[in-house]
């Protein structure tokens, strides 16, 4: 197919946008970070499904499945990341949806990041991470088709 035709086809069949479930897991209500990230990702062309505060791992995974999301982004500032992030990965496994990519953000010490990656969390962004680094990371994982 010629390039022109490919462009034409795109008009009729919009490429599948990357759908991302953004969730606050755990009990804390600090949503400044997740909201800023939500806006930045929207402006970068992603489709964000924001689930709000105090989500359990089961709720997050269920939302991702129902929404046909390719990515789950978790935000947490209470220090419970070593319990809750792996619990989301485990729940995905249980639901046979390991292909859904999980990333997280929050106050996570370096040693914990290493351990979380071992357990299947794809990436962790800590406070001060430029928004562009999150966008670039996602675009890299999901190149436009």
């Amino acid at each position: 197919m010629s390039e022109v035709a490919a462009a034409g086809a795109q008009v009729e069949e919009p490429a599948r946008p990357v759908r991302i479930v953004l969730a606050k897991v755990g009990l804390d209500g600090h949503d400044r970070g997740v909201k800023v990230v939500a806006r930045a990702l929207r402006d970068a062309g992603f489709e964000i499904i924001y689930t709000g505060l105090r989500q359990t791992p089961q709720m997050v995974v269920e939302a991702a499945l129902q929404e046909d999301a390719q990515v789950i982004g978790l935000s947490l500032h209470s220090g419970a990341h070593m319990t809750l992030f792996p619990a989301v990965v485990e729940e995905l496994r249980r639901r046979r949806a390991e292909d859904i990519v999980v990333f997280g953000g929050g106050i996570v010490p370096e040693d914990d990041i290493v351990e979380l990656k071992k357990q299947g969390v794809a990436e962790i962004f800590t406070p001060g991470a430029p928004l562009q680094s999150i966008i670039d990371w996602l675009r890299n994982r999901f190149p436009a088709r």
């Binding site: 919009p14 946008p17 939500a38 806006r39 990702l41 929207r42 402006d43 970068a44 062309g45 992603f46 489709e47 964000i48 499904i49 924001y50 689930t51 709000g52 089961q58 709720m59 269920e62 939302a63 129902q66 929404e67």
Partner: peptide, 30 residues
């Protein structure tokens, strides 16, 4: 903006989040 969207309607339907008899889907107009 550039085809992106933030869909937040699930928030108000939390208590049905784990009910297998309920399906919630957010649709953008993109």
């Amino acid at each position: 903006y550039s085809g992106g969207a933030i869909l937040g309607d699930r928030i108000r339907m939390q208590r049905h989040a784990l009910d297998p008899g309920v399906y919630i889907r957010s649709m953008g107009a993109r």
